[in-house]
């Protein structure tokens, strides 16, 4: 689909966006504090944080709507400050609400943005209109659209030029559950089939959990953590809970504690915080000590647990 970008494996491994020590100060107040973050190609990447944590400011700096006080942002290797036009060519975005020209029709709005990037044909406009399911209403004025339809028109203008990176700021704001589900499925499909990297911000934990491959957690302008979601297969996943089912749990706890493994007893199950390599080691140790291990499995913590753990349970909506 994206003919202008070579699809070699080397390129695919390169992070699509690099933020390096990005800092924003407004009137002596530090809004974003030395934020360093790589966004891997082809993922749905969540940007999670409470309201006022600096998500929107970061996104505005990524698309050049706001200047940086310090640091640099590169999109596909292009510096957003010095090579703005090349960098932004790679990006499609909706920053906060998808505001359109209400007195124009949906089609005229798309034509407006199509004219700003060379090479977008009328055919391509029709294609994205069909993609977001607005065919029936595209020649109506935008003022007659529902919020969900405006959101879809917003997505259409953002993907029209086949960007490498799609940035969506709080895209589920104001959408009903069906709209959220629709958007979510659509974003995952885009990431999978077109190889578009999606960077999506939200303060809604449950949404991010369903939508994202990975989330970065931000609070008070500082990056707290980056976590992979959707399965323990991802290496480097910390904070996985492993449950063991054994024949004599109390004795097993004593044995493991004697060896310095932090373990708690949850009912009849041993509960430990570890990755799967360590879990295999514990299994061997228990079997070696003559315990019957009926089974063990990793229980991925919900994002909410992880989030509260990282942010210290501070206010989140």
């Amino acid at each position: 689909m994206r003919e202008q970008i070579p699809a070699s494996a080397a390129v695919a491994k390169e992070p699509v966006v690099r933020l390096l020590n990005v800092t924003k100060r407004i009137g002596g107040k530090t809004i974003i504090d030395k934020l360093t973050l790589d966004i891997p190609t082809g993922e749905v990447f969540g940007f999670l944080g409470p309201n006022g944590s600096g998500k929107t400011t970061t996104i505005r700096m990524m698309v050049g709507l706001m200047g940086m006080t310090d640091g640099e942002i590169k999109i596909r290797g292009y510096n957003i400050k010095t090579e703005y036009e090349k960098a932004i060519r790679q990006v499609g975005a909706i920053v906060e609400n998808p505001e359109m020209y209400k007195y124009l029709t949906g089609y005229q709005n798309l034509l407006h943005y199509a004219r700003m990037i060379p090479g977008i044909t009328k055919q391509r406009i029709d294609e994205v209109v069909a993609l977001v399911g607005l065919k029936e209403r595209i020649n109506d004025k935008v003022k007659t659209y529902s919020l969900g339809m405006r959101q879809r028109l917003g997505v259409a203008q953002a993907v029209m030029h086949k960007p490498s990176l799609l940035i969506l700021d709080e895209p589920t704001n104001g959408l009903d559950p069906a709209g959220i589900r629709e958007l979510r499925d659509y974003l995952r499909q885009l990431a999978r089939t077109e190889g578009i990297t999606v960077f999506v911000s939200s303060h809604l934990l449950s949404e991010m959990e369903l939508m994202c491959d990975r989330v970065a957690i931000i609070q008070s302008g500082k990056l707290l953590d980056v976590r992979a979601l959707n399965g323990a297969a991802e290496t480097g996943l910390t904070g996985t809970v492993v449950h063991f089912e054994v024949d004599r749990p109390e004795e097993a706890v004593k044995l493991l504690e004697a060896e310095g493994v932090p373990v708690t007893l949850a009912g009849a199950l041993l509960s430990m915080n570890m990755d799967r390599e360590a879990a295999a080691g514990v299994n061997a140790r228990l079997v070696g000590a003559g315990f019957k291990v009926y089974g063990f499995r990793s229980v991925a913590k919900s994002l909410e647990d992880q989030f509260l753990e990282v942010t210290g349970g501070e206010g989140i909506v």
Binding site: A93, I94, V95, E96, P98, M116, I117
Partner: peptide, 9 residues
């Protein structure tokens, strides 16, 4: 916002 995030100065 949507007007400025295009490959134009």
């Amino acid at each position: 916002k949507l007007l400025l995030i295009r490959p134009w100065s």
